[in-house]
Amino acid sequence: MRYFRKEKNEFDWVLGVEDIASMLHLLGKALPNARTVVFNNSKFYQYKYDYQLPIKTGVLARILKAIYGPILLGYLANKSKNFWYIWTTGFLFNRESEFAFLKSIDKKLICHFGGDDIRSPQKMKAFCAEKGLDTFIDYVGAGHPFYLSENYETEKKELARVADKYADVIFSAEFEQISYLTRKQHYNPFLYDPSKFNFNPAKFENLSKIKIVHAPSNPLIKGTPLVRAAIKKLQIEGYEFEYVELQNVSNQQVLEHLKTAHIVLNQFYQLIPSVFGIEAMANHCAVLQSASLELEPNQPKSEPDSWVVTGYWQIYDNLKYLLDNPEKIEPYATGVIVM
């Protein structure tokens, strides 16, 4: 990589190399003079990037990355002064070697973590136990013992060590993504495309059949079994509503449902809204979620009625309240749009 001829910086930012919940795509649109690089983008989005592999998964993809990654890194290192990394992947398979190379030529690095990439399961389990809260950690660990193993914890310690050593700025959620990071953590920026805001008061004019949407990326982590239990109990009690559960569908299909949804059930073990929570609020929906300013105080302050704060034990009660008081649904939905 050092053999590339040094040229004048042409780009302000290189963003890569994994797009999590469209964050890289949105950053690419928000930051001036940026170039996006994605080697394994999500199957739920169909965005185009400045540099990407024709094959995203499998052995061939790893071979292509092993060849193309170092070449592209050397090229872009002579084109840009700032590198913004989302998640844990990079141009090379060894993150410390990659970061050491970039710092040796005076590049600025941002590490942007999004969840299980940096989160320590053991620390999260202890944090929730101290607060008297259940957590998804035990459930994931029951199905995947490695998740709670010392080897997995060692991986998280090493990732934090490298970020602490080389990053100029670190984005993470200090409590939701509790980790071994020792440096100052800036709260993850939540971005959303202004053209996709959908203020639709007309859908609240007829609430004879309230539409409820739940779209978990991971049912176990998001609290889907508890959502289904609440939905089933309300149906048995005679409540009439439309319940739509979306899994393994494109983001475009999710957004189409949000346009006509009245209530969205987001996630119930997490302390922050997540990208789906932002999407739901931007589409004029009343959102039930466990996001808590009390437990994750670093997230941006919001209006009191931006969403219905709902713990995993409150899904049935809070949903029943909105079904019993449908006039309250639109104020929650509208409060988000104008916050």
Results as ranks from 00 to 15, higher is better:
3 Y>S: 07
10 E>D: 10
12 D>P: 01
16 G>A: 04
17 V>M: 05
18 E>V: 11
30 A>D: 11
31 L>R: 12
31 L>E: 12
37 V>T: 01
37 V>I: 07
37 V>Q: 02
48 K>W: 06
49 Y>K: 00
56 K>S: 14
56 K>A: 15
64 L>W: 02
65 K>F: 09
66 A>S: 11
68 Y>T: 05
73 L>C: 11
78 N>T: 03
86 I>Y: 15
92 L>D: 06
99 F>A: 05
101 F>W: 08
104 S>C: 07
106 D>T: 09
110 I>H: 04
117 D>I: 14
118 I>M: 01
124 M>P: 02
125 K>N: 12
126 A>H: 03
127 F>L: 15
130 E>S: 12
132 G>D: 10
132 G>H: 13
143 G>T: 01
146 F>T: 05
146 F>P: 00
149 S>A: 00
151 N>D: 11
151 N>C: 05
153 E>N: 05
154 T>K: 12
160 A>L: 09
169 V>M: 09
172 S>E: 04
175 F>N: 13
184 K>L: 04
190 F>G: 01
196 K>V: 09
197 F>Y: 14
199 F>Q: 10
199 F>G: 00
201 P>L: 03
211 K>F: 06
212 I>D: 03
213 V>D: 08
214 H>F: 09
215 A>D: 04
219 P>C: 11
221 I>G: 06
230 A>K: 12
240 E>M: 04
241 F>D: 15
246 L>W: 08
249 V>Q: 11
249 V>I: 06
255 L>D: 11
255 L>I: 09
257 H>F: 06
263 I>W: 06
270 Q>A: 15
274 S>L: 13
283 N>A: 07
283 N>W: 12
287 V>I: 00
293 L>I: 05
295 L>G: 04
299 Q>A: 07
303 E>G: 00
304 P>A: 12
316 Y>A: 08
318 N>Q: 14
319 L>N: 13
330 E>F: 08
331 P>L: 02
331 P>M: 02
332 Y>W: 03
339 M>A: 05
